[in-house]
């Protein structure tokens, strides 16, 4: 519902091959894509978990408030958990994992993320996306003592700052994931970080997408240390009924275009 109605109409014009992009559009399009891919994929995953539960199978969560991650290793413990677990168990560990020199471990991290990028499709943009995540993981591992010291000094503010920095990195990486080619990804990155001046005011749709993503991020942050299932189990019938009613009304009042599930292509 959110992926197709709120986010996709803001994403598609920005990432269309050949589209001209200014700074505001590059940021809104990229933030909207972060919202779209999460709502799309986490939504389908939740449907699968629900269907399995109806048949008596309890599948693990595939997403655990990923946009509230502090650090890239934390992000990969929260995003597409089934894939990241598989990559860890069947690539990183067989490659040697961290059972060797530091350089050996960093190599394994890079290789795992490069192959993880390639897993999404035979396109260099996916490899670049994986490489970027690999580099972030390597950088994080190398600077861990420094980061830990900073976290101790800054306390809660440091956690928030770390979360925002991680989100920024994840957003930058999503550009490679969604762009049709290298040239367009470079164009969007250039527009994001070199002010090009806004050629047009943000549309109401874009502003709404930003507000909804802000709420999504806030919810992730609040649920950062909580298990949604457990939280829901603790609600009484009345509050559960109200939550379900709000969701039902929102779903019924969101007719519109139905787009293909993004991960169908992978």
């Amino acid at each position: 519902m959110l992926a197709d109605s709120v986010f996709a109409p803001v994403v598609d014009p920005v990432f269309k091959a050949g589209a001209s992009v200014d700074t505001a559009a590059a940021w809104t399009g990229t933030i909207a894509f972060a919202g779209q891919i999460f709502c799309d994929f986490a939504g389908y995953s939740t449907c699968a978990i629900g269907c399995a539960a109806m048949l008596g199978f309890w599948l693990p969560d595939n997403f655990r408030a990923p946009y509230a991650a502090v650090g890239f290793s934390d992000f990969w413990r929260r995003w597409h958990v089934s894939l990241s677990t598989w990559l860890r168990d069947y690539l990183y560990v067989p490659l040697g994992g961290n059972r060797g020199s530091r350089l050996f471990t960093l190599r394994n991290l890079m290789l795992t993320m490069l192959l993880g990028g390639l897993w999404h499709g035979a396109a260099w943009t996916f490899v670049a996306w994986g490489a970027f995540h690999g580099l972030m993981l390597v950088g994080e591992r190398l600077s861990r003592p420094l980061l830990e010291r900073a976290a101790t000094m800054l306390g809660g503010f440091g956690t928030l700052l770390g979360g925002l920095m991680t989100l920024l990195g994840v957003l930058v990486a999503w550009v490679w994931f969604r762009a049709p080619d290298f040239a367009h990804a470079a164009k969007i990155h250039h527009a994001m970080f070199v002010a090009t001046g806004s050629s047009a005011a943000l549309t109401a749709e874009a502003k709404i997408a930003l507000v909804v993503f802000g709420l999504l991020w806030l919810m992730h942050w609040l649920l950062r240390h909580h298990d949604l299932r457990r939280w829901l189990r603790q609600r009484n019938a009345l509050s559960l009924g109200v939550i379900w009613a709000i969701l039902a009304v929102a779903i019924v009042l969101s007719p519109g275009v139905s787009r293909a599930f993004i991960y169908f292509q992978f």
Binding site: A237, L240, G241, W244, A245, A248, V249
Partner: peptide, 22 residues
């Protein structure tokens, strides 16, 4: 029982809200 009660509450609330909008 909790789930069935919640479902009944959700149906009544959602149905009423949608009917009002319609």
């Amino acid at each position: 029982r909790r789930a069935l009660t919640a479902l009944a509450i959700a149906l009544v609330l959602a149905g009423s809200a949608l009917y009002a909008v319609e």
